[in-house]
Computed example of a mutant assay.
Amino acid sequence: MNSITRPASTLMIISGLSGSGKSVALKTFEDQDYYCSDNLPIRLLPAFVRSVLGEAEAAPRRLAVGIDVRGQSDLTQLGDWRQQALDAGVQAQLLFFEASDESLLKRYADTRRRHPLSQMGLSLPEAIARERELTAPLREAADAVIDTTHLNVHQLRRRLVTEYTLGHSSRLSLLFESFAYKRGVPAEADFVFDARVLPNPHWNPDLRPLSGREGGVRDFLEAEPEVQTYVAQLVDFLDTWLPKLGSDTRSYVTVSFGCTGGKHRSVFLAERMARHAREQGWEDVATYHRELE
């Protein structure tokens, strides 16, 4: 791994107990433009990082890999490979996910999935206990242990976005969030903008199944004069006031957009303003779509 010389590169290693939220975590990082790979054998980690990062200027700067007990010969090797990444200038973090036995049992009962260790002839409680033993070295070496016992999928996604994809630079980080008013305004929002005054793509049968991330909805909204005026006023407001928050003690700001269903107009605005923020030079920018997660 000595050929990796890009100090700005980030590697998030996702591990932990099956059913504790590892797949949700990996999908969340993927949504934040991380290059992701799931169930990577530990022995292939150095080659994977070296191959993906490479030397090309266009190579991904941020990677996330999922590692669990499936197909692994010795989980204790992960510490050595992680240290090699750190020595090469890659900012490597290991996140370990866990939950209580009761919570894991309920999740498996709800989803009717098989535990990865069930093929060993173990009952589900036995498989969970055995996995705790096998992954103990990873838990010990983890930079953070995340207990998801009392977190739903939406809470876990938002925690990962705000704690691990934002707030790692000295500059203010921005989170642009969409939501549906019928499910309530996000309590953590710093700014809230109501998109229900805009034309609603929901009433177009061709656009109804789509989200504000997709081209058809974007084209529809961008063609509306009211939307153009709304966006222009948003740009003027946020460009004026967001930089002034940089001197505050806060590490990130959440800008939330709401509409009726949280699927079209609010999503479009969150994505549109996130893109504008990146174009303006903001380094840490993320989006979170509560009703789409």
Rank of each mutant, 00 (worst) to 15 (best):
T5R: 05
P7I: 07
P7V: 04
P7T: 11
S9E: 08
M12W: 07
M12V: 15
I14H: 06
S18H: 08
G21D: 08
K22Y: 10
S23L: 11
S23Q: 07
K27H: 15
T28G: 09
F29K: 02
Q32E: 15
D33M: 01
Y35C: 07
C36Q: 11
C36M: 12
N39W: 13
L40I: 15
L44N: 02
P46T: 03
P46H: 08
F48T: 03
F48V: 07
V49C: 14
R50W: 00
R50E: 15
V52K: 12
L53Y: 00
G54W: 00
A56L: 09
A58N: 13
A58C: 03
A59C: 13
L63M: 09
A64Y: 12
A64S: 11
G66L: 13
I67S: 04
S73W: 03
D74W: 02
L78N: 13
Q84L: 10
Q84A: 12
A92W: 01
A92V: 04
L94F: 12
A99W: 15
S103Y: 02
K106H: 04
K106W: 02
A109F: 04
T111V: 11
R114Q: 14
H115Q: 06
Q119F: 10
L124I: 03
P125F: 09
P125M: 12
E126A: 14
E133M: 09
A136E: 14
R139G: 14
T148A: 06
T149M: 13
T149H: 12
H154E: 15
L160E: 03
L160I: 00
V161S: 00
T162S: 00
G167W: 08
R171F: 10
L172Y: 02
L174W: 13
L175C: 07
A180I: 01
A180W: 07
R183E: 13
R183A: 02
P186F: 02
P186G: 10
F191A: 08
F191D: 11
V192Y: 10
F193D: 07
A195L: 06
V197R: 05
L198G: 02
N200P: 03
W203N: 06
S211C: 08
G212M: 03
G212T: 02
R218H: 00
A223H: 12
E224H: 10
L234T: 03
L234M: 15
F237R: 03
L242K: 05
L242I: 15
L242C: 07
D248E: 15
T249G: 08
Y252R: 11
T254N: 09
T254P: 00
F257A: 07
G262N: 06
K263G: 06
S266V: 03
L269W: 13
L269R: 04
A270M: 06
R272F: 02
M273V: 05
M273E: 10
A274D: 06
R278L: 14
E279L: 11
E279Q: 14
G281T: 07
W282F: 14
E283H: 08
L292K: 00
E293M: 11
E293W: 02
